[in-house]
Structure formats: C-alpha cells, structure tokens
Design a protein around this nucleic acid. Structure first.
Lengths: 107, 107
DNA sequence: CCAATAATTAACTTGAATGTTAATTAACAA
DNA sequence: TTGTTAATTAACATTCAAGTTAATTATTGG
C-alpha cells in the first residue's frame, strides 16, 4: 500500500477524483471510456491515470488494445482506516458541537 | 463544508498531513509550536496553515499574539463520510480478495 | 511611547504539475 | 503485410506550489 499523502495527492485533482468515483459507480472502464464528456485530450487523461496508478488507487487489466481500469479496494480502505483511526477525535468534537447547538436552541 | 478535492489537496503535502495528525493527537497548538523540529521557516509554515484553513481543515483562535490552531472535526467527518458512501464498493472488493486468498491457500 | 515577540504578508526563485500536439508502441483485422 | 484503433510517451509551454529572506502588522510588557 502506498503513502497516504500520495493517495491524497492523487485525489486532489477534480478530474482524477471524478475518474475514481466513476470507476466505483460503473465498474471497470477503458481509458477511452473515461475520456467521454471530459473535454480533454487522450494524453492528458493517460497521465492522470498514471498518477492514480502510481498512487495505488487504480489497477489496469489489458484487454486487446484497450486498458481496463478499476479502483483498488485496498486503497479506498486505507483512507477509511485513517479516518477511523482518528474517529475518537472527530466524533467527540462533533458530539460537543451537537451539545453546543442543542444548548443554543434553548436560548 | 469545503470541496472534497480541496480537502485532499490540503492533505497531499506531508508537512500539512503531519500538522493535522499532530493537532489531532495533541490538541490545539500555536503556529510556533507547530514549527518545532520541522526545519522550515515561519513564513512557510504560515502558508501551509493558510492552505489548511482555506480547505476548512483547521480553525484558528486568537490568543494574544499567538494563533492557536485546531482541527475541525466536521472536515475529518467529511472524508469519513465519503469513504463510507463508497463502502459497499471497497468492502465487497476486499471480501472477494479474502476469498481469493483463502482459496489460494488450499493449493 | 518603545522594544520585543508572534505571526503573517510581500517579493522573488525554483521545481513540479497539467495541458497541448506530434510521434511511438501494440494489438487486431482485412 | 498493411492499415486502423487504442493508448502511451516525447517535447514543449504555461501555470501553480513551496521554499527563502525582508518587510509589515498586531499584541504585550517595561
């Protein structure tokens, strides 16, 4: 599994975040499929996919002349794990906020 | 709440990711405190903090000449929510992987 | 008021990221 | 083989990110 900041870096671009979300929703897609309606050249998309690959967020399966991309579940889990590792912090914080709002309502 | 890609962008830098983790572990710290052992100029850190602020990841509380920074729980929750929104995807993927590994063990 | 401390903003340099078009590689099909 | 399609790599231009030092703002204490 890759570095977490590298994963975040890969997702810091709207194009790449959209690609990942689309792959999770629609399953594996080719580089050409991912190009639809994006208004971007093929080489540009190819490089975005390379960034996602190197971050460990997607994997490729060769299918003839096409490359089928899909999201790696373990990469998504790495992010989920990180948030859950700190859940005690943000859960407590949100609870405090809720109490605060509840008290404010009384005024 | 800010854009998710903006949050990821803020966390894509190791310095900033470390700052966020340190703030979650130690509670609120001043800009000067955060500078310790980082080997970086104050202006550089100041700008990292600005990035985190604009992404909605941290908040500031003025205390005399110091600025006390802390992590905003709702920002962390936004990331957690995103991963959980797609949990069905990566959970299923990991289960499949587990089955795969279990079957491989039999050989 | 004046000096000291904390932090930010300004100005500048440098390296990385992102897009383009052109060229290259690889697989398939006539 | 030859031509077509899919995708990537090469080369280049431009914009953005991140660091530095110097200057500025704001608060506190003598």
């Amino acid at each position: 599994m890759q570095n977490l900041s590298q994963i975040f870096s890969a997702l810091s671009d709207m194009t790449r975040l959209s690609v990942v979300e689309r792959l999770m929703a629609e399953g594996e897609l080719s580089a050409g499929d991912l190009l639809d309606d994006v208004g971007m050249s093929a080489p540009a998309m190819s490089r975005h996919l390379k960034v996602l690959r190197r971050a460990g967020l997607v994997q490729v399966q060769v299918d003839g002349t096409r490359r089928l991309y899909s999201v790696r579940p373990d990469a998504m889990k790495a992010i989920a794990d990180w948030t859950l590792d700190h859940r005690a912090f943000w859960q407590a914080g949100l609870d405090r906020l809720e109490v605060h709002l509840a008290l404010e309502e009384k005024d």
